[in-house]
């Protein structure tokens, strides 16, 4: 009798894509597509994931997929969604955006705001690798404090990026949408679960997935998931849901790790351990983590109520 492949092994992002070994975002997409299954339309912003998967004539996508430009992906997705509606094909599949942090929190912001405000049945998923990695690690609005990038390098007068991350999930939630969630490639099952929730609502949903880039961040390719987990264990990346405007299901950090444990594994923060004044900066980052844990608390951990759509 013939051996059969497990359903979970069906890979809708095919092998042979040209992502770097150990790519966090590629891993994110594998998990997203396992959650959505084949009945999905993907609109992909310009960026690493677009480039590694769609060099003519080779496509890694086994689902209908479109790339148009960098900043217009939410609008393209809106177009797919209304077209399906107009053509009576809405049952065919869910429309999902996949975009990086630059395409989301910076240049894509206006189109996203429009899509969320208009209430399109689109699940927007941002893979957050915290800089413009496609073009070689330039600073984005999602780059964390003190990360050295090529446009926010450390130097005699610089500790690296001088601003903390833009709080995009809060901006998305401010549109009054029913489902906002953060997750991490360090927790593939949490990620899958949240994608499934995001696509189950029939109105806009926003997800931001922390997805380490071993090249840009400077760590060994084997440690992608480990680093992602450390971001959560230190309190630098919070995992939560905002359902119908209410913060719920914050992932508890039981033994908070000192931020150094996370920072020291990455070349982008290496200067903090060598420069005079670096220790004070590490303290600042520790404060950010502590504040995160204070800010994202819910009295009781409860399952989110029915998501209003």
């Amino acid at each position: 009798m013939q051996a059969k492949y497990d359903e979970q092994s069906i890979d809708l992002l095919a092998s042979g894509h040209k992502a770097c070994a150990g790519c966090g975002p590629a891993l994110t997409i594998q998990a997203i597509l396992r959650a959505t299954g084949a009945n999905v339309f993907v609109a992909n912003a310009t960026g690493c994931m677009e480039i590694i998967s769609s060099q003519y004539p080779q496509s890694a996508w086994k689902v209908p997929w479109i790339h148009s430009l960098f900043e217009n992906t939410a609008a393209v997705a809106s177009g797919i969604e209304v077209a399906l509606k107009a053509l009576g094909r809405s049952e065919e599949g869910k429309v999902v955006v996949i975009a990086g942090d630059g395409g989301t929190v910076d240049i894509g912001m206006q189109a996203i705001s429009g899509m969320l405000e208009r209430g399109h049945n689109v699940c927007y998923i941002c893979y957050d690798n915290e800089a413009y990695m496609n073009t070689g690690n330039q600073r984005s609005g999602s780059t964390p404090l003190d990360a050295s990038t090529t446009t926010s390098p450390f130097g005699k007068r610089s500790f690296g990026n001088d601003r903390p991350k833009k709080n995009m999930p809060a901006i998305a939630a401010a549109h009054g949408i029913s489902y906002v969630a953060t997750s991490s490639v360090g927790y593939p099952r949490d990620l899958t679960k949240k994608v499934q929730k995001g696509i189950s609502v029939s109105s806009p949903a926003y997800l931001q997935i922390h997805a380490p880039c071993n090249i840009g961040w400077g760590f060994d390719s084997a440690k992608t998931i480990e680093i992602a987990r450390l971001a959560v264990e230190t309190g630098l990346w919070m995992m939560y849901e905002i359902v119908n405007g209410e913060l719920v299901n914050v992932m508890k950090v039981r033994n908070q790790q000192p931020v150094e444990e996370y920072l020291k594994l990455q070349k982008r923060f290496a200067h903090l351990f060598k420069m005079p004044g670096g220790d004070a900066q590490i303290k600042l980052i520790q404060e950010l983590a502590n504040n995160n844990l204070k800010k994202y608390t819910v009295e009781t951990q409860k399952e989110a109520g029915e998501i209003q759509t």
Binding site: F41, A43, I66, S68, L69, E71, N72, A74, A75, V76, A77, S78, G79, I80, E81, V82, A83, L84, K85, A86, L87, R89, Q110, A111, S113, G114, E117, R118
Partner: peptide
């Protein structure tokens, strides 16, 4: 007129919506 009218937030998005819709098989 039976059509989906998308009240976009810019002309950039107007054309982008048309791209998404046209690629899905709609007349735009």
């Amino acid at each position: 007129l039976e059509a989906e009218y998308v009240k976009v937030e810019s002309e950039h998005s107007a054309m982008s919506v048309c791209i998404g819709a046209s690629a899905t098989g709609a007349r735009t």
